[in-house]
Amino acid sequence: MKELDVRGMICPKPVIETKKALEKSDKLLVLLDDQVAKDNVMKLAKKLNCQVTLLEDGNEYQLTIKKTDMVVEKQDESGGKVYFISTDTLGKGEEELGYALMKGFVSTLLEINPLPAKIIFINSGVKIPTLNQQAQEHLQQLVEQGVEVVSCGACLNYYGLTEKLEVGSITNMYEIVESLNTGEVVSL
């Protein structure tokens, strides 16, 4: 990401420099040390319909500015990916860590663009939409945003979790294989 340091510059220089830099790059990190300048650069970013994130630490300000025509275009491509999740922990290793990582993973799925098209839980993966309370909440939000969340019926049955499924729906192997065969798949 391109970095623009406007610390010490006097208004309206920070705004002018930011505007110039944004003409050349789609994503920009601006460093500022003045509150008024920070407010003005944020105003500019909003006027240009950019996504802007402020990190404020005392009198130090960092603005991450992203052009949204980029973000929107990406979303229009539609066709998010199919996430095939076959364990309740993420990666191999200590269970405690894998469990925490999975929670973080599911929460981050809410922030990607485009959102997943579908999330499939299989084998111990079905413990996520049934027993992992934090992940359940996030999956619910994903469902509300149009993401299809499905769990393997045979697996729910095996673990005795069918009654506990509160988010998404139950699916079977035919549907799962069909999704894997036609979609762009990410396996975990």
Binding site: K46, Q51, V52, L54, L55, E56, T68
Partner: peptide, 8 residues
């Protein structure tokens, strides 16, 4: 919406 503020 498009704005996120993170304040230490």
């Amino acid at each position: 919406k498009l704005e996120k503020r993170i304040i230490r």
